[in-house]
Simulated assay, not measured.
Amino acid sequence: MSENNHTNGHHAPPPELPISSYPPFPNQLPEGQWFTGLFACLEDPSNCFATAVCPCITMGRIANIVDRGTISCLAASVIYVALVYAGCAPIFGCTYRTKLRGLFSLPERPLPDGMDYCMCCFCALCQDYRELKNRGVDPSIGWKANVEKWNEEGITMPPVVAPAMTR
Rank of each mutant, 00 (worst) to 15 (best):
L83A: 09
I155D: 01
E16D: 10
G32F: 02
C126K: 12
G136M: 14
N134F: 15
V147Y: 04
Y129A: 04
A52D: 11
C94A: 11
G102M: 06
G60C: 00
E43G: 09
D67E: 14
P23R: 08
T98L: 14
E148L: 13
V147D: 02
I91L: 13
N146I: 00
S46T: 08
P18S: 12
P112D: 06
P23D: 13
Y117R: 00
L132M: 11
I65N: 05
C94L: 03
P24E: 05
I155W: 02
P158F: 10
N27S: 14
C73S: 03
Y80Q: 01
R167K: 15
T95D: 03
A86T: 06
K133Y: 11
E108S: 15
E148T: 09
N64I: 00
G136P: 12
L38F: 15
V81Y: 01
N4P: 06
H11Q: 07
I141K: 05
G142A: 00
P159G: 11
R135C: 09
T98Q: 11
C123S: 15
N5T: 03
E152M: 15
E131H: 01
E16R: 04
K99I: 05
H11R: 08
P30F: 04
G32D: 00
R101K: 10
V84Q: 12
V161F: 06
D44E: 11
D44M: 10
S105D: 02
N146H: 01
F92Q: 08
L83S: 06
M115V: 10
L100Y: 10
S21M: 12
Y96I: 08
E43T: 10
C56Y: 07
E16Y: 04
G37I: 06
E3G: 05
L29R: 05
H6W: 09
L100D: 07
C48T: 10
A164V: 13
T51G: 08
A75S: 14
F39R: 04
F35E: 04
G102P: 01
I57Q: 02
V53G: 08
N4A: 10
